[in-house]
């Protein structure tokens, strides 16, 4: 195992430590790095402009996560309700798109959404000749792209706990007089929270650091942290500030992951209680 650990240390730990170090230096006038210690890059992260971009990214990523979880949970629920022998097939096909190229899946939405694209043509086919607002280059397009790209993972994450659910639990709940809704809310949902949390966190974390989707589907009109980091490294040539932004991104990610672990712990505690109640 030594070589693998050496590899990870040399090509992940050290470079990431380097980025952390970079964040404490100053940018030269034309890019490059001046080796004088400063905290101003971290201060700049909290500048209203950049803090605003963080918040906006979080909002877009959060919306994408919410939508993906709603659709993904419904899909996972439907798959788990299907006949046993069909479940692996459904699941396989739900996940398959996830393994095709991300850029291509995003590009497919440009083809669908542009003003002269397929959706417009369908509308015309049906006789609609009115003004067609652009669907591409909107926040909706960016969110649709994110949901589309990450949905398979959410389905997977939600399916795992749903498929392990003991059907007797739901029956017991109903036998005790609970309505279907109550059963879902009090028994099924708590038991599947870890899956929901994992799916939501996954979508959120990948979305907030994404730069490809806003660049291609947002028409440059939407800045997310990913774009900002990209810009600092490849266009503004302010590596130290880019490094500080990247570290802030990692910090947000760790916070979200910790929150998820905590939520999962609580949920499993509650689930055990619920199970105890149902068994009793």
């Amino acid at each position: 195992m030594a070589p693998a650990l050496v590899w990870l240390t040399a090509l992940m730990v050290v470079p990431c430590a380097l980025v952390l170090a970079l964040a404490f230096f100053r940018r030269g006038i034309y890019g490059g790095i001046e080796y004088t210690f400063t905290l101003e890059n971290f201060g700049l992260v909290f500048d209203p402009l950049y803090a605003g971009i963080f918040l906006n990214s979080a909002r877009i990523a959060g919306t994408a996560a919410l939508i993906a979880v709603v659709i993904g949970y419904a899909a996972a629920y439907a798959i788990a309700a299907a006949p046993r022998r069909l479940q692996p097939v459904f699941l396989f096909f739900a996940v398959l798109p996830f393994w095709s190229n991300y850029l291509i899946r995003t590009y497919a939405w440009i083809v669908l959404l542009n003003r002269e694209g397929l959706i417009t043509q369908l509308l015309r086919w049906f006789g609609y000749t009115g003004e067609q607002p652009s669907m591409l280059y909107t926040e909706g397009a960016v969110i649709a792209g994110l949901v589309y790209n990450y949905l398979p993972f959410v389905i997977l994450a939600c399916y795992a706990p749903l498929s392990r659910l003991n059907p007797e639990l739901a029956e017991a709940s109903r036998d005790l007089g609970a309505s279907a809704l109550t059963t879902f809310r009090r028994v099924i949902l708590p038991l599947t929270v870890p899956g929901i949390a994992a799916g939501a966190v996954f979508v959120f974390v990948l979305s907030i650091g994404n730069f490809v989707t806003p660049a291609l589907l947002g028409g440059g009109r939407f800045q997310m942290i990913g774009n900002l980091v990209y810009d600092q490294f490849l266009t503004a040539n302010d590596w130290p500030f880019g490094a500080a932004l990247a570290m802030a991104l990692i910090a947000i990610m760790l916070l979200v992951l910790m929150a998820q672990a905590l939520a999962a712990d609580r949920a499993s505690g509650r689930a055990a209680e619920a199970k105890g109640d149902a068994d009793g």
């Binding site: 980025v19 650091g209 490294f233």
Partner: peptide, 23 residues
Amino acid sequence: LEALIFAPMIIPDIVLAIALLSF
């Protein structure tokens, strides 16, 4: 050890990318 092995799967691509570029 677990964190080290798990990290490459969750670290945002853009962060690993700029880290390696700087490195």
